[in-house]
Amino acid sequence: MKEEKEEEILKDKKKNIEEETALFARVEEFLQVFRKNAEFTQDVLKENEKLRFKVVQLEGEVSRLKDILNSHDPNAELRKKINELEQGISQMLDKFRQVEDENRTFAQRYIEIEEENNNLANLYIASYQLHSTLDFKDVLQIIMEIIINLIGAEEFGILLLDEKAKDLRAVSAEGIERDIFPAFKLGSGIIGNVAQSGESYFKDKIPDIIKLDFHNPLVCIPLKIKDKIIGVIVVYKLLQQKKAFTSLDNELFTLLAGHAATAIFSSKLYSESERKLTTIQSFIDLLAK
């Protein structure tokens, strides 16, 4: 019985040992699994750490690339360029308008100067011609040419003052027979008054049809040497293409008033002196014989 009990105890012990051994084996197995898991976890953690580092690196790279992209944004560059160009264009347009205005002013000024230049040339040529001779007839002819060609008169006359008779008589005429000119009393009528006052006369309006009236001219200009009046120029009719007087005509009339008078006076004095010289020379020749 005892032996049976002992054997049973032994059996139990053996069973326990076997169970313990199996348990140990299972624990060992579990530990191995656990160790493997631990190693795996460590590997995963290491990998995780590596990945995090990589993520941080990539985030930095992304940020840097964004900055680069922003700094090299082609649209921004273009917008900037467009703004600059628009400003440039605006400035250019302002400048262009200024230049255009200046050009217009210069063009207008050019026309004015050109006209002034032509007027001065006409005056110069007229003046030059007037003083180019001391022959009385030539001087009268030049005055006539100026009145025809530069002013555009068709019917007119040059009248000189007879100091003794106190009247004005025609010495030259165009478009009208000189001999049919009447004598104009100094101080009487338009012509006589111009010769007395020294003030030019211009008819207010040039009529379309003109009938010759010796006492009613279109224009009457005194021929003056300082304040001394030696005669007048009277214009009765203009050439058919000449419809009105211009500023140049006024200048030419002013020029004629002074220069034509001087030229006429000088040529008359010269002719008289020549005549006297011839007379004196003849007298001397006679005495010498």
């Binding site: 032509n118 040339a121 025809i148 002013i151 555009g152 050439l239 058919q240 293409q241």
Partner: peptide
């Protein structure tokens, strides 16, 4: 100085290339 239409036509018919009337303008 002849500014009439007939004068102009006559001159052109005779062979003139241009007909200007006095007083002339330089331009």
């Amino acid at each position: 100085t002849e500014g009439g239409k007939e004068d102009r036509e006559r001159a052109i018919t005779l062979g003139a290339n241009a007909y200007l009337t006095k007083p002339i303008q330089a331009p």
